[in-house]
């Protein structure tokens, strides 16, 4: 059997919000390591990869590796039925046709039990090679969300340029041009609120704001976001979630024809 109990159930709600607009359906792969998911959006332009490590649950039991084929919209609807302070347990049999979500209130006076049918999903798993990135930019997650929101008012795409002066986000549209420049903070330790840039090579790449905006749905999960950029490669946008794992998004760049 599979059983994973998450004391901070609100995390599962937030993970769900962070993927449901990007991915329609996906397999949640449950193993001894934890719960992982990898899926592309329907147009195969972006990819989301998440890991919830087993030690983030209490308890976690996985007798046999299983894949839970889940329709994200349906699961998101069920997750909305959980209160923010509920403890969430995910449970299924070894050869499951369905999965059960149990929501317990903190004082255990209320227990909700939702059973959801599973789907057979042909998952296309992509191997993501270790990449030497030209620039790794860490910044407050809320700042990145704000930049994506503001530049979406100007154009469809953002050009991310990183050099020794800092990082610049720029967008261009019918009405004009918008540019947002961030300098690296003087303090080097990576505390919340800091912008830090690890630069190997100056780099400039263009990405669709529509997808970056989908990625920023993960903002409630982490205070910091990391953008790893490399010439002619997808950008990796990572939100590390304390004590349990991460959600990473990859987005293919736009190129000039």
């Amino acid at each position: 059997m599979f059983e994973a109990r998450l004391v901070q159930g609100s995390l599962m709600k937030k993970f769900m919000e962070a993927i449901k607009d990007l991915v329609k359906e996906a397999n949640w792969d449950c193993t001894g390591t934890g719960i992982s998911l990898q899926a592309m959006d329907t147009s195969h332009v972006s990819l989301v990869s998440l890991l919830l490590r087993s030690d983030g649950f209490d308890p976690y039991r996985c007798d046999r590796n299983i894949s839970l084929g889940i329709n994200m919209e349906s699961m998101a609807k069920i997750m909305k039925c959980a209160s923010n302070d509920d403890v969430i347990t995910i449970r299924s049999e070894d050869h499951p046709d369905n999965v059960t979500f149990v929501f317990e209130s903190p004082n255990q006076e209320k227990v909700c039990d939702y059973e959801m049918k599973l789907m057979d999903i042909d998952s296309e798993h992509l191997g993501i090679p270790d990449t030497e990135y030209d620039a790794i930019i860490s910044m407050p997650a809320s700042e990145f969300q704000r930049i994506c929101r503001d530049l979406s008012n100007i154009g469809d795409s953002v050009k991310i340029t990183c050099n020794k002066d800092g990082v610049q986000f720029s967008a261009q549209g019918d009405t004009g041009i918008g540019k947002i420049a961030l300098k690296q903070n003087a303090v080097i330790d990576k505390e919340d609120g800091q912008v830090s840039i690890e630069l190997n090579d100056p780099v400039s790449l263009t990405f669709a704001l529509r997808y970056l905006t989908f990625f920023t749905k993960a903002t409630p999960l982490a205070s910091t976001v990391t953008l790893s950029v490399s010439a002619k490669n997808p950008v990796a946008v990572e939100y590390r979630v304390d004590d349990i794992g991460y959600i990473r998004y990859y987005l293919a760049p736009k190129i000039e024809e």
């Binding site: 798993h125 191997g127 293919a252």
Partner: peptide, 14 residues
Amino acid sequence: LLIQQGMKSFYQFA
């Protein structure tokens, strides 16, 4: 003109 690339042109199936 900017062309959106797809994910599969970068990563192989595992």
